[in-house]
Design a protein around this nucleic acid. Sequence first.
DNA 1: CGTGTAAGGAATTCTGACACG
DNA 2: CGTGTAAGGAATTCTGACACG
Lengths: 95, 95
Amino acid sequence: MDSYKHKKVISIGIVSELTGLSPRQIRYYEERQLIFPDRSKGTRKYSFADVEWLVEIANKREEGVQTKEIRYEMMKEIRETMRKGQINAHFRSRM
Amino acid sequence: MDSYKHKKVISIGIVSELTGLSPRQIRYYEERQLIFPDRSKGTRKYSFADVEWLVEIANKREEGVQTKEIRYEMMKEIRETMRKGQINAHFRSRM
DNA sequence: CGTGTAAGGAATTCTGACACG
DNA sequence: CGTGTAAGGAATTCTGACACG
């Protein structure tokens, strides 16, 4: 089972270590609606799925892809997945 | 794969919420050598496996089992598992 | 023995802003 | 646009100790 993968329990400092992204970058991607952490009394909590998604974001950014485009592709992927009736954990974890 | 289960990334406050144990109790069980968190710059980090093991400890404590006995049983279990050549993640995660 | 609490310090996180580009 | 940084405050965590039992 993958409940571990989607449980939001990791604080931003650890996510930063795990992804190599700065806290500033991670918060910015949230502002741009690419990532959706939970809030535990004010502080952001991320899942392992979030961490993996952030690494993907980092790779796309390195390729020069803008956050707006990443968001557009993400939405499109979600739309397709929903159309197939496959609203699975892969996307649930990002919303 | 269960790398998520054994990666130590959760801070004590979240572990406290997840287990229902107080931070004081969690630190005490560490002092009694029942649990072995990693340290990320001074602060303790736990895995989901640690969280599950803490819940087991909590159950035993409610039954009146002392930490010393829990530790003894834990060691015995580990010894048996090692004898069978089954040093698997179940125990690796606690050491 | 196991756990609560007050104490003081250190490290973390948060937000809004200015900077550069 | 994307990210760094300094700023001030709030919340977290740490340790060692005293308390009770």
